[in-house]
Simulated assay, not measured.
Amino acid sequence: MKYNKTAMTKLINEHRELHDELKRIKKDMGLEKNLAIKALYHSAVAEEGPYMKEYQELERNQ
C-alpha cells in the first residue's frame, strides 16, 4: 500500500479525530501540512493501522 495524498486528505476530512491529530502533529512537531499528513498516514493507516481499511476503500474509489 502506498501513500496517496488525495485519499489521505479525504480520510482526514471524514474523521474529526484525524483532523485534530493532524493539527496536534503540526503544532507539536513543527511540521508543514504535507509532512504532517504523511506522518499521520504512517501512524493511523500504514501497517494495519485503525484506518487502513477505510483508506484502501477511498483509494479504490478514485
Rank of each mutant, 00 (worst) to 15 (best):
M1C: 13
K2E: 15
K2F: 10
K2D: 15
Y3D: 14
Y3F: 15
N4Y: 00
K5N: 14
K5G: 14
A7W: 06
A7Y: 04
M8Y: 06
T9W: 12
T9E: 15
L11H: 01
L11M: 05
L11I: 00
I12L: 11
N13Q: 15
N13M: 15
E14N: 15
E14T: 13
E14G: 13
H15N: 13
H15G: 00
R16I: 13
E17Y: 13
E17S: 14
L18F: 11
H19S: 12
H19K: 14
L22Q: 08
L22E: 06
K23D: 00
K23G: 07
K26S: 01
D28Q: 14
G30S: 03
E32H: 04
E32V: 02
K33S: 08
K33N: 04
N34P: 03
N34K: 04
L35M: 04
L35P: 02
L35W: 01
A36F: 07
I37M: 08
I37A: 07
I37Y: 10
K38V: 08
Y41A: 06
Y41Q: 02
A46W: 03
E47G: 02
G49N: 05
P50R: 07
Y51H: 09
Y51G: 04
M52H: 13
M52N: 12
M52D: 09
K53H: 00
K53Q: 00
K53L: 00
E54W: 03
E54P: 02
Y55N: 07
Y55W: 13
Q56M: 11
Q56T: 05
Q56L: 11
Q56Y: 07
L58T: 03
E59H: 07
R60L: 03
N61L: 12
Q62K: 08
Q62T: 04
